[in-house]
Structures are given as C-alpha cells and as structure tokens.
Amino acid sequence: MPLSKELIEQKLNEKFSGESFVFTEHRNELTVSLDKKNIAALCKYLKEEDQLAFKLCEDITAIDWAKRKNRFTVVYHIFSIKQNFRLTLKADVDESDCNIDSVSSVWKTANWHERETFDMYGIHFNNHPDLRRMYMPEEFEYHPLRKDFPLMGIPGSLSLPKNKN
C-alpha cells in the first residue's frame, strides 16, 4: 500500500492518541508539526514501523523566526526508501527553553546535523553524545545564523594570526 497523507495521519493518531499533530501540504510536500516532547518517540516509531520505514534522515536544521513567541522551529527531513516518500517534521522551540531531545540514537546521521544546528542556532540537543561546534572555532561565542547576528560578524570575535615580521 503506497504511503499517503491519510495513512500517516491515521497511523500517527492511532499510536500517539491524545497528541495533536498538524498536517500541512505545500507543493505536494507533507509536513507534520508536533510538540517537541514527542520528537524522539515519534522518530523512533517512524523509523521502526514496518510500513513506514523512514530509514534515511536527510537533514536536520532550524528556522529562526526572530520576533515570534516560539522563536525557533527545528525541522527534520526524513525519507523512506522503501515507500519512496519524503516527510518533514517540525517542532517549535522557545528561546527561554532552548532545547529539544536528540534523535541521534534513532539515526546515527543526526549526530552531525544536530551539532551543526547547535553551532548555527544555539539550540541544545538533550542526550546528544558529542555536542560540540561543527564549523566555528570552539572559542567563538555567537551563533551566526540567528537573525540578530550581523552578516559581517562581530569585529574581534574571531582572531587573526599575529604578524611576526
């Protein structure tokens, strides 16, 4: 049976009864918005349920909405090779409580994606095995993809080598 919006909706509501999922579609792409406390359990279910089999985690990132109440949205793109179906998961994270459960125990590949998101947005991933900066030097204090970080950076935040001659 090919995967469709209805089937996923039905399966998720069966498994996680009492939780509210919001299903949206834009340009034929299905997106599920959920509460951040469910993310690890839901990802585990989506991966291990035989009919869904979302075995490939393509990407994890975040969006900074700047002035919104829930400032960040963490976005997961997962793909089911078996069903040839792509699904987007979204969970809101507020700045005052800037953390979300890690899914690196579900997909190994999530490790680096979450590190990158931490580096760029400063969102903390709980239970992550190795949460370090991905790109920027460890001494760097800021999170560059936040909207309040200027494009040209903050002068003096990154060092240049000293000229010896």
Partner: peptide, 10 residues
Amino acid sequence: GGMYRSYPVV
C-alpha cells in the same frame, strides 16, 4: 574576500 562578504571569511 571576493564575493564572500560574510562573517567567517578574512
């Protein structure tokens, strides 16, 4: 710096 007028590029 070329086309990269951005924070990490010298």
